[in-house]
């Protein structure tokens, strides 16, 4: 399997994540698209780890999962807090940082 196939697959997933981030107005969906982009990068790291037969890249994937988990916990807490204040997760309403 040529390495390019994995490059193009993760590029496609990353671009879909960017399109979703730009298209949607729901803050939670935008957050999920960011997770999708993180996963695309992880996939590429694993492919290169297999290509160079080196396990450091897989450790990097492990750490990026750790950071993603922490990020989701804090980000969802922020979204819940904003929802309590303005009763919406629409980013066009959340764009003021102050109410």
């Amino acid at each position: 399997m040529p390495i390019q196939y994995y490059l193009f697959l993760s590029l496609a997933l990353f671009s879909i994540g960017i399109m979703g981030t730009l298209m949607r107005r729901n803050a939670i969906i935008i957050f999920m698209c960011i997770e999708l982009m993180l996963n695309a990068v992880n996939l590429l790291l694993v492919a290169f780890s297999k290509m160079y037969n080196d396990s450091s890249a897989q450790i990097f994937v492990f750490f990026s999962m750790v950071v993603a988990a922490a990020e989701v916990a804090v980000g969802l807490a922020i979204i819940v807090m904003m929802y309590r204040k303005v009763h919406s997760v629409d980013i066009n309403i959340l764009n003021r940082l102050k109410h």
């Binding site: 997933l13 879909i16 969906i29 999920m32 999708l36």
Partner: peptide
């Protein structure tokens, strides 16, 4: 499967 489900997400 990955690409079609990713399109389904957005």
């Amino acid at each position: 499967m990955a690409i079609s489900c990713a399109l389904g997400v957005i």
